[in-house]
Design a protein around this nucleic acid. Structure first.
Lengths: 216, 216
DNA sequence: CAACGGTGGATTGGATCCAATCTGTCGGAT
DNA sequence: ATCCGACAGATTGGATCCAATCCACCGTTG
């Protein structure tokens, strides 16, 4: 059994801090503070922050430190535009080579999302939601594409949690996922692409509204 | 004047080491060795390596260290496939909003590539070539897209230098760039996209041949 | 009163030291 | 002869310490 290194555990903690809003957009990330919070030295914190920086989750100013990235509306639109292009590519590649067992696994993941939604556990729902979508994307067998998509998803993590706050959004996501699964069962890539586009379309609208409200 | 931090200087040194083949694909990157070579401690090395890791230039195995990434043929094909999609997007966005002054600047960059090609300075040519292409991509005003494209380009840096070794490849690139510039002057995005596709098509063939030769 | 320069506290950047882990090798047991 | 475990060297991971930088505050000066 290979134990996780400290920087790895710190990394997941930091991600969750950002996801839950404990570290909000624009906040300075003081290394000493985190070191104390997690009971480690500053070294693994720094390495974890470097990773987050390259993912665009935090920005780095030399000699000033790391700050949780803030998304402008333009950023948000760009992220969704890129996702639209790349997810379509992933889906078209994945659907024809998806085995029945993989589809069954997806049904399983769908159930997890529903469960978390029912329990109003926003964190669990965000995680399950991601697993559902990436089970499809990863099936394309294009690791770099998966990696880029992960970065794009993570870039909006700080805001996605807000989206799932609304019960109507949770219900909507549940319905859409069900339709995605049925398109998958028919191996209907084009419908799946269209459903994803609608899915994103709605959430980009909702999140921009949140952003606009914040900036006021 | 704000001085560069050590990790930044180390980062550019490392990039150049990889580009020139001083660090070849598959090599282990021993931190102590680099620390001595650059006359610094291991800390900035580690941070620079973290950055390279997230770009996919090196891979990281906990407790074992960093290794210069090796590209399989499948990796290479994926990189070029993604570039094809994303560069087309960048070009279509950029061309209509490109000012005359920007086109003039590109002509300038083209000249630099030619000069370096004439001088058989592979390093300078690689750098100038990149500046030429990214002047176009960056003009799209989509920073995340630019960033992703940079990562994709860097992933094949270790192999690109080999491509420019061949004089016929250098000549070909020079000709193609000239045609790109003239398409740009006419604001003909579709021709420019097509030229880029041909450009890539040829180099992916050449680099796969190099890869195949290595693996034998 | 605005602009400038100095000063002190806070924070990050880098160096050095020690601990943890991995890997290859050498004996010994089966 | 082969497999297994202990040991040693090498390398990385993390902690601690000191130096460099930044930034806000304040007093001075024009």
């Amino acid at each position: 059994m290979t134990r996780a290194t400290t920087q790895e555990t710190v990394l997941v903690s930091l991600r969750s801090d950002i996801l839950t809003g404990r570290l909000g957009p624009g906040d300075q990330v003081v290394q000493e503070l985190l070191a104390e919070r997690y009971g480690v030295s500053r070294v693994p914190i720094r390495e974890a922050l470097k990773t987050l920086e390259s993912e665009g989750q935090v920005v780095y100013h030399p000699h000033r430190g790391y700050f949780v990235a803030e998304l402008s509306v333009a950023d948000l639109l760009e992220v969704y535009r890129l996702r639209s292009i790349l997810e379509a590519e992933a889906i078209r590649q994945a659907v024809p080579i998806l085995g029945d067992d993989a589809v069954d696994a997806l049904a399983e993941l769908l159930a997890e999302v529903q469960t978390a939604a029912g329990a109003v556990d926003v964190i669990a729902m965000t995680a399950a939601n991601r697993r559902f979508h990436f089970a499809i994307f990863d099936a394309a067998g294009l690791p770099r594409l998966s990696r880029i998509l992960r970065q794009l998803w993570e870039a909006t993590d700080a805001y996605r949690a807000l989206y799932f706050q609304g019960p109507e959004n949770r219900d909507r996501v549940a319905r859409e996922h069900t339709r995605m699964l049925s398109a998958l069962r028919k191996r209907d890539a084009e419908t799946l692409v269209r459903l994803h586009d609608e899915h994103r379309e709605h959430s980009v609208g909702a999140v921009s509204a949140i952003l606009a409200a914040r900036d006021r």
